[in-house]
Each structure stands twice: as structure tokens, then as C-alpha cells.
Amino acid sequence: MRRLVYYIATTLDGFIAGPDGADPTGPNGFWPIPEDYLRHIAAEYPETLPAPARAALSVTAEGTRFDTVLEGRRSYEIGLEAGITDAYPHLRHLVFSRTLAESPDPAVELVADDPVATVRRLKQEVGKDIWLIGGAELASALYSEIDQLILKVGPLTIGAGIPLFSHTAAFDPRSWELTDHTLLKSGAVFLTYARVTH
């Protein structure tokens, strides 16, 4: 069965974005993007690079991990504000929204249904794993369905912002097993955790 993987960049203090929710890697962002960090993503997770970055880096690799990306409306709108209607044309792209009336891009599927029911259907389909890109509210709604965490931990703290899971998440302690880790010279750490099921 396909897994739902929350693959996300986080600060040391557990934030995925600043308080305004803007792209932390954007022109006015605070997220450091050293060369070894980009190289590692291009080599190990090429399908998670948005199309403009893939073009700039001459990345053409299909990738072996994901064929589907799930995104909340607020995360999706960060790309829209930059003029990008589909940042991941090389993946099946689903955006969860109850307010968007129609998709700004014919390749982007709008989903107004329950995220959990949708993910359970997707897991039954044949294919690669499903990438949950965020944001925090969608991650909270899908908390019970996440099978793997891949955290790109940056060597910085920001004090306040949007956490990995929003305050809407239910209190539900879960155990995770560290299955892989990569430490880069620039200080970023990639941590892979599998959910421990009893």
C-alpha cells in the first residue's frame, strides 16, 4: 500500500513558516539554501523540487519516491501569488479547498471532500508514495494517516511561526522510529521517521 509522507522543512524550534505564512525560501524569506542542501534534494528527492527550480538546476530525474503531491489552499496560494499555477506538473497535484470554486490550472485537482477519506482512497491505488507538502492545517487533518515523516531540519530558530501541525490537531501521542538520517556540512539534517504501529 502507498504511504502518506509528510516531507517538510522545519526550523530547530519546529516551525515550517513565519507568522505571516509566506514562503520562507522566497525572495524575502529567512530560510538558508546552501549549495549542499540543494544538491542533496536534487539527488535524493528530485520530484519535490518545483518546476522553476528543476529548470534552473537542469533536473530532469523523475524521482523514485512520489508520484502525487497534496497541498492545502494556503500553501497553494503562495505559488499562485508568484504566478505559478502548478509548481509540480510532473506529479499528480491535489489541492484541498472548500473555498476555491475552480482550479486555476487544468492539471491541478481541487478536492473539497474529507482529506482523510481522500487519502485512504489514494493509498489503495497503485503507485508511488504520496507527498504531503503542507500546510500545517492539512497536516493536522491528516495526522492519523501519516506513515512517514521526512524532516529537513534547518540550522536556525525563529521563535514564532506556523508549526509542523496546527493548533487544530488533536492530542494524540505517536511513536516514530528513526530509519535514516543525513547530516550536511552546512548544518541541515534530513531525518526520516517511520510511524510505529502496535
Rank of each mutant, 00 (worst) to 15 (best):
T64I: 04
I8F: 01
G134H: 03
P163L: 00
K185N: 09
G79A: 09
T25W: 15
Y143Q: 15
I146G: 11
Y7I: 01
P104H: 07
F165Q: 14
T85L: 01
S97M: 03
F15I: 05
V5D: 09
E177I: 00
I130N: 05
I78F: 03
G79H: 13
G161K: 09
T48Y: 07
D172N: 14
R120G: 08
A188E: 13
F165Y: 12
I133Q: 09
Y37V: 09
D129Y: 11
I8W: 00
S166A: 15
R2P: 03
A107K: 15
T64M: 05
V119H: 05
L12H: 05
V196S: 11
A87K: 11
V59I: 15
L149P: 11
D172F: 04
D180W: 07
L49H: 04
L4G: 04
I150D: 00
Y7N: 14
H167N: 15
S175E: 13
T48K: 06
V196G: 04
L122C: 04
D13E: 08
A194N: 15
D13L: 10
H167Y: 07
R2M: 05
P34I: 07
D113W: 01
T118M: 07
W31T: 04
L142N: 06
I41L: 15
E35K: 12
W131K: 05
A56C: 01
E137Q: 15
A107I: 08
L164S: 10
L122S: 07
G14I: 07
H167V: 12
L183C: 09
V153W: 04
G29H: 06
G134N: 10
E177L: 12
A141Q: 14
Q124W: 00
P50H: 11
D36Y: 08
F96A: 02
T99R: 14
V111D: 08
G63D: 03
F165E: 13
V196T: 10
L191Y: 13
L91R: 02
V196W: 05
V189M: 11
V196A: 13
G72C: 07
I8E: 04
L38C: 05
N28C: 05
L70N: 02
L38H: 03
E77I: 05
R54S: 07
Y7D: 14
W176K: 14
A61F: 01
L122W: 09
P106R: 10
I41P: 11
A170G: 06
T168V: 12
L70Q: 09
L149G: 08
P19G: 00
A82P: 02
T68V: 02
L156N: 05
P52K: 01
D105M: 02
L100C: 04
Q148N: 06
L122N: 03
R73A: 11
